[in-house]
Design a protein around this nucleic acid. Structure first.
Length: 733
RNA sequence: GGGUUCGUAGCUCAGUUGGUUAGAGCGCCACAUUGACAUUGUGGAGGUCAGAGGUUCGACUCCUCUCGGACCCACCA
């Protein structure tokens, strides 16, 4: 069958891919293991341009496979707790429903179904890109063995006293009744009133006077001479009978306002940190419904129970009565955080959370990196992760979301009467209160069946158990932070007998912006659980952007769907375009022109093969040994150099330069020079031999980058022979 | 404010131990082309490698400063 004059990717890609899968070409063969774990994409996600960079994994897998390694590239899916629940709730909202209508179990099952319905698509899309992973080995982060591992690790950490509970300041939306992650917060600029309030001799500027009842201190800058004499003294908190200390902290900006700051640890992120530093009490004055709950020392009792805004007005009014308002700046422009859903102000407040102590977990990571147990490419990332390990603080691992692995801690309802509980009663109506009170009107079984959320005081007693302990217990409703489970990815993806030979894995290639969130955690867990780093090499890439270097986002309308480009230009062109000319660690602009150029390249080599085959039809190839022709000698020498260079570049993770090398060799040396010279040769039989060797070897070198077109050409030249089974990476001496 | 990083052709970017005329893709100009390929070929225009200073026999490459971006973190009560 004669080759067509164009490489028609649409006609061959699907066929080639199914041949690969059927022939077991991705199965590990050979002795020496080589292992790559795929960073698990969100289970319900569909392919975006960034996933295209998994091409890096595929290049390594194919390269090492051709070199004779027993390659395993294990894929997976992440349940992506918060983000998935966020997407799910958006869908619910379209139907006019809210998560608050469901008990916890039902909600979980609904989300599970939602994820299942939307799952699977991304692996199909990965196949379109030619990825040669072990699909049947795919792991989902909610699979039983993952949950087991997470429980085991957690239990061990509890036993070793690495786990503690503490209040953590979260962004809470009283209207929506939930705490929100950074993802869900909008920052808006707004003009508000800035009140100057006299606390005895000192004046404080604030936009939130109503939170003053939760003040634990006033703070000034240590170098601020105006106030030095006040540091260490106490002032009376207006409208109360309480005295608070004046402290010095360098976080204070001397130039802002009066240079005196009120410290309200329960309702401000900065103050929360300052409160920790100075061991100040955390006094909550706003509850989760956004109403004031004042301590007894407050003299204006009407404010108790008021909503925040009303409380602010009332507070100012009362302050004015006693002459404590020095002035009001009506036009203070500042940034406020608002709920992405309802647009209302976020209320920072403290909620009990689970933490792990990281101090002891960090140092093995630092040591391992310094000893080069794990190497980073590009190297600058080593500096970044070491810097991060320095400043990393204790990690809050609990999230107030349903979709995730539920923390296996149980509270006795007879010993912890002050457990806060919200559940749907038999009529489906939400009921909130302390468990001690609720049990007077409802049974524990009813409460457990309708349970929505539970909030245990930080001092509550608990037991860790995978199943319900005997007696009256309720399980924690918080789930683990997604990174707590995905951080153990290298500990759950291999089979038990593989750990001896495949751990540490060879390479982890992922996006640079999760170096801290994910890579550092995997190293921590790997060293903690197995005493060894989880991977020997880390390769990091930056965000895939549009042609102008802008991040892709729906709001900008610059999102490129990779599959559209694959349809139009072929998977090979798409893959090659992501690598070609893009330096390591830099941004990866996805430019359609470049994809087209790479499609042209695929077509170019297709036609080089076509030229060879057409020439072969008329002439017999000489089955002779070494050619004496000077052009043959020259090209073979150059081929040898290219083979050496490609091998070395791929071993050093220099993909862009490798892509460039093979591109130029094929197009500008083989096609432009060697083939043109072959046309003029008298000894065509000999020339054909040289051309064949150059072509076949070049196909091998290009194959990791452009698997489909190289396979298609290979089969044209060697009918009935699968390239993946036959082709070996050229030996380099 | 802290940290990281970048500023090279019209655009997007390569240029890893400092060493002859600084490269690619796309775009542009001229010409060619009916026996691999117009998804082509040949040739060409286009850069004081952000600026200043320093180290060196020699700097796009190393150091310092200035100007101008990017990102991450912390963010003005």
């Amino acid at each position: 069958m004669a080759m067509e004059s164009k490489f028609e990717h649409n006609k061959v890609e699907a066929k080639i891919y199914s041949e690969w899968e059927k022939s077991g070409a991705f199965e590990p063969r050979g002795q020496n293991p080589y292992t790559i774990l795929m960073p698990p994409p969100n289970a319900n996600a569909s392919l975006h341009a960034g996933h295209g960079m998994y091409t890096i994994d595929d290049i390594l897998a194919r390269f090492r496979r051709m070199q004779g390694y027993a390659v395993r590239w294990i894929p997976g899916r992440d349940h992506a707790g918060f983000e998935t629940q966020f997407v799910y709730e958006k869908n619910l909202a379209k139907e006019g429903k809210s998560r608050l209508e469901y008990d916890r179990q039902t909600l979980y099952q609904n989300i599970a179904k939602f994820v299942e319905d939307n799952s699977g698509l991304i692996f199909e899309q990965f196949r379109r890109l030619g990825f040669s992973a072990d699909w049947e080995r795919a792991v989902f982060t909610l699979d039983p063995q993952v949950v087991d591992m997470v429980y085991q690790t957690f239990r061990r950490m509890v036993n070793e006293e690495l786990v503690y509970r503490s209040d953590y300041l979260v962004n809470y939306c009283p209207h929506c009744g939930t705490s929100l992650a950074e993802l869900e917060i909008n920052h808006v600029e707004r003009t508000d009133k800035l009140y100057y309030i006299k606390y005895g001799p000192l004046t404080v500027a604030t936009v939130r006077p109503e939170t003053m009842f939760g003040d634990s201190a006033l703070s000034v800058h240590p170098k601020d001479k105006r106030y030095t004499s006040y540091v260490g003294s106490e002032v009376l908190l207006p409208l109360t009978t309480r005295k608070i200390p004046v402290i010095a902290d360098s976080m204070v900006d001397m130039k802002f306002g009066t240079g005196v700051v009120k410290i309200t640890p329960a309702h401000d992120p900065n103050d929360f940190e300052a409160g920790k530093r100075h061991k100040l009490p955390t006094i909550r004055v706003i509850d989760q419904l956004g109403r004031m709950t004042l301590p007894k020392d407050v003299m204006i009792s009407e404010i108790n129970g008021m909503k925040v805004k009303a409380a602010r007005e009332k507070t100012v009014e009362e302050l004015q009565k006693i002459g404590a308002v020095e002035k009001i700046d009506e036009h203070y422009l500042h940034a406020v955080t608002v709920c992405y859903k309802c647009g209302r102000d976020m209320e920072p407040m403290t909620v009990p959370n689970w933490y792990i102590r990281v101090e002891g977990l960090k140092s093995p990571v630092v040591t391992a990196i310094k000893k080069k147990k794990t190497r980073f490419y590009p190297q600058k990332f080593e500096k970044q992760i070491l810097e991060w390990m320095k400043i990393m603080h204790d990690w809050p691992i609990s999230r107030q979301v349903v979709w995730g692995i539920r923390i296996p801690a149980w509270y006795s309802t007879t010993e912890n009467l002050d457990l806060g509980v919200t559940f749907l009663n038999k009529e489906g109506k939400p009921v909130s209160g302390k468990i001690g009170e609720l049990l007077k009107t409802s049974t524990l079984t009813e409460i457990e069946a309708g349970l929505q959320t539970l909030s245990a005081p930080t001092m509550a007693k608990y037991v860790v158990s995978e199943s319900k302990p005997a007696g009256d217990y309720l399980q924690e409703t918080d789930t683990f932070d997604t990174w707590f489970s995905s951080g153990q990815w290298p500990l759950v993806t291999l089979k038990e007998d593989e750990y001896a030979t495949r751990y540490p894995t060879d390479v982890m290639a992922t996006m640079a912006d999760i170096l801290r969130m994910w890579v550092s955690r995997m190293m921590m867990f790997g060293l903690y659980v197995r005493g060894e780093v989880p991977f020997k090499n880390v390769y990091l890439w930056s965000t895939v952007t549009d042609a102008k270097g802008q991040k892709m986002s729906k709001s900008k309308g610059n999102v490129i769907n990779p599959i559209d480009l694959v349809d139009k230009y072929g998977a090979d062109a798409f893959r090659m375009a992501l690598l070609f000319g893009n330096g390591e660690g830099g941004k990866v602009p996805l430019v359609e022109d470049k994809v087209r150029a790479m499609r042209n390249f695929a077509n170019k080599i297709w036609n080089m093969a076509r030229f060879y085959l057409l020439m072969q039809e008329g002439i017999k190839r000489e089955k002779q040994g070494v050619s004496e022709n000077i052009e043959d000698k020259k090209i073979l020498k150059e081929l040898g150099e290219v083979e050496k260079k490609m091998t070395s570049l791929l071993e050093k993770y220099r993909f862009a330069e490798a892509a460039d090398t093979i591109y130029h060799f094929l197009w500008h040396t083989v096609a432009d020079e060697y083939i043109e010279q072959v046309k003029k040769r008298e000894d065509k039989g000999v020339a054909l031999n040289g051309l064949r060797q150059v072509l076949l070897d070049s196909l091998k070198l290009l194959h990791p980058f452009m698997p489909f077109v190289t396979e298609a050409i290979w089969q044209e030249i060697n009918p009935g022979e699968g390239m993946l089974i036959v082709a070996k990476w050229p030996e380099v001496r």
